[in-house]
Write a protein that binds this DNA or RNA. Sequence first.
RNA 1: GCGCUCGUAGCUCAAUGGAUAGAGCAACUCCCUUCUAAGGAGUAGGUUGUGGGUUCGACUCCCGCCGAGCGCACCA
Length: 603
Amino acid sequence: MDIKSQLQTQLKQIIQELFDTEVSFSVDVPENAEHGDYSTNAALILAKPQGKSPREIAGQIQQRLENSKQELGIEKIDIAGAGFVNIFISQEKLFQVLTEIEEKKDTFGKNELLSGKKIITEFTDPNPFKEFHIGHLYSNTVGEAISRLYAAQGAEVKRVCYQGDIGLHVAKALYGILNNEVKIEDVEDKSIEEKAKYLGQSYAKGATAYEENEEAKAEIIEINKKVFAKDASIMEIYEKGKTWSLEYFNNIYARLGMQFDQFFFESEVGEDGKKLVLGYLEKGVFEESEGAVIFPGEKYGLHNRVFINALDLPTYEAKELGLAPAKYDYFPYDESVIITGNEINEYFKVLLKALSLIRPELAEKTVHIGHGMVRLPQGKMSSRTGNVLTGEWLLDEAKKRAYNKIQEVTRSEKRENREARVSIADQLEVSEKVGIGAIKYALLKNGIGGDIAFSFDESISFEGNAGPYLQYTYVRTQSLMEKAKNQGMTPEIVTPTTYTSEETVLLKHLIHFSEAVAYAAASYSPNHLAEYLFALAQKFNAFYANQQIISVSITDGDNVSVTPSKLQLDSTIPKFRLALTQSVGQTLKNGLTLLGIPTVEKM
RNA sequence: GCGCUCGUAGCUCAAUGGAUAGAGCAACUCCCUUCUAAGGAGUAGGUUGUGGGUUCGACUCCCGCCGAGCGCACCA
């Protein structure tokens, strides 16, 4: 259990004993170090109901907490401001975090808060036949991060992807293929990327025709019916296109370092959804209106939505209704998290309301998270008009820029005498990982709800609060470890004779890692973890710049002289600093991994 | 028109009802004969759209106004 939870438990008990009551107080990590490592507002909350001054109550809490000082590793307890109880952790307790990291390694930061829980996450949801644009990349990045955060809480997580392989958009794409100068047979031998591009172009053609040409529109509607009826005349190109799309998507997932456990298709859940709707039509949940079957959301302060259209085909809504039970059959979950763009937030409210009247136990377990839209300077993306940036384009572009950066750094005049950082053979792989890191971090550092104004130069950064900065800091730790090893030095968790302020600041930050992970998971906010990691990297870089971590030999002509340093006079200091460096490296790596961001050893 | 979301530094964004509203970018100063300068140190930049209210305490909660985005019937 992390220190914060221990304090919370202890304080709760103290309040119970003192006042025989329960209140919702918080234990915070103050921004200002003078306010302690942890702080609680319990006294402020209790003041009014107890009819006492906040500082008086704070005093009582302080007194009781004194008894647990030893057990909790508290150095001192202050009362400050309006009645805050500020808690300072002892140097010995801080120091213990190094041992914890050393022991837990890759599992440092994990906990068992959701142990035994089954969680199903659904995200990305690209539609076959259409482009995989940067909005999908965003959904995928957020979904993967949340999935990993959940898993770090001890939950069993299944990632699923729901794909619209049936419906009007597919019919539009098929129309586009049938009316494309380039026949589908002609792209048979092309790469999967080109096949995907062909499908995307076909969709754009079909979508345009649907709006501009009445004849085409009628034809597309016919094609749509045929697909639902699995008409042999259309199924061959349908299956071909769908297969290509799915293969293409899978390549992107692999590139992003993730994979789904299960795929669901609209074509598979549509019938079940329709049956559910018709079944509950009789029970009055749904109503007939203008030839369609609707859910009267207006009755519940929402808006009405069509579930089965006048052509007797299930809409997205009905299909989604069929999806929920299908997911539950696949994996009987305790919680179902669905991550989509926030443009369908209200639609989801209607859907969940309808589901609550049909399968209330499933509706209760379902959480919808709407992430912001990726906005381009040119306006909203539209796969119909071609104003899209594909995910693949973005990944390639970021990789290219990372590669250029490597070249630039290697050629830099002031550093020409230094050994090449990344071997030629590794440069492409490093570029790929740094590019992905830059993109994912850019998407994750912001809160999930808001839109992302996307322009490459402003959004994808390799410096400052950016993915590569964190990757770079990790590389520094690894580089130091390697250098130390070559000099025969090993990290050792020994108490140094003195601490510098940079070291204490780092230790104080490290103890909050698992708390940050838990908080990010509980609030569906990977950005909190991103922020934590950035702060950690900043603190480490300040430490790095101001303190000598290992002793260094300097070559002066032919003579090799070793600078005498205080590090060599007191062997505990370099050992401790190395241990600290290793711990920071491990924590950065664990944190980045939780965000789905790859690390590299050199860059 | 109704509903949802949002409005914080020049720009992009943070900030569980808590203490002096924080970063990054851009601008301006400095720092590579110390371990990777994709780095570090510093300066400047704010009436948190606006007017009320609740609270010991409001960027955060409530109401009004102004402005933006999204959604409101057979697309997903």
